Computed example of a mutant assay.
Amino acid sequence: MKKILLVDDEQSIHTVYTAEFEDEGYEVISAFDGDEGLEKFSNEAVDLVILDIHMPGKTGIEVLRQMKKLKADVPVILSSAYQEYKRDLGSWASEEYIVKSGNLDDLKASVRRLLSEKK
């Protein structure tokens, strides 16, 4: 079973994403801030990360940089409610940038594609 690390400070995102991705057959590991996300990323064998950008403490861009230094081969999807971060050069290290929405079709398609490419 493929493992997805979800790093987001919003409980509602964890509830929805966990239910949706577990229904798709993935295991979801939750982290609620950048430090917790980095700890779990370092200690767990995850296959993919969904990472919020705007969180208290470390931003998603800072966490992304540290994750890529630790394990460059693990794909990271940046997820934000804000379109403007897409132009931030720091976000270009991610494999995907998805604007949060009530429709998870784009996010699910990206997860499937990145995990199938990873083999």
Rank of each mutant, 00 (worst) to 15 (best):
I50K: 03
S94M: 08
L38T: 03
Y17V: 09
K69H: 07
E84H: 13
R65L: 12
K58A: 09
R113P: 00
D105H: 11
E96H: 08
Y17H: 11
E96I: 00
E20W: 08
E24Q: 14
G37C: 01
S101K: 11
P56E: 10
E10K: 06
I53Q: 05
D47N: 10
W92E: 06
A45P: 00
H54P: 00
S42P: 00
L114N: 03
E27N: 10
E20A: 15
G25E: 07
E117L: 09
D23C: 15
F41D: 01
G60Q: 06
V28W: 13
K100F: 10
V99Q: 09
Y85V: 01
Y85K: 02
V99P: 12
K118N: 06
L78F: 11
S79Q: 08
K3P: 00
K71I: 00
L107N: 12
A72Q: 08
I29P: 00
T59I: 00
V74A: 04
E27F: 15
A109R: 15
H54G: 01
I13M: 15
L107T: 10
M55N: 10
Y26T: 03
V99G: 03
S91D: 02
L64H: 05
L89Y: 01
S42K: 13
D73K: 12
V7M: 10
K58D: 03
E20K: 13
E62K: 01
H54N: 11
M1Q: 13
L64W: 12
S79M: 10
Y82W: 11
V76L: 05
L6F: 12
V76A: 07
V111P: 05
F41Q: 01
S30I: 14
V111W: 14
K58T: 04
L107P: 03
K40N: 04
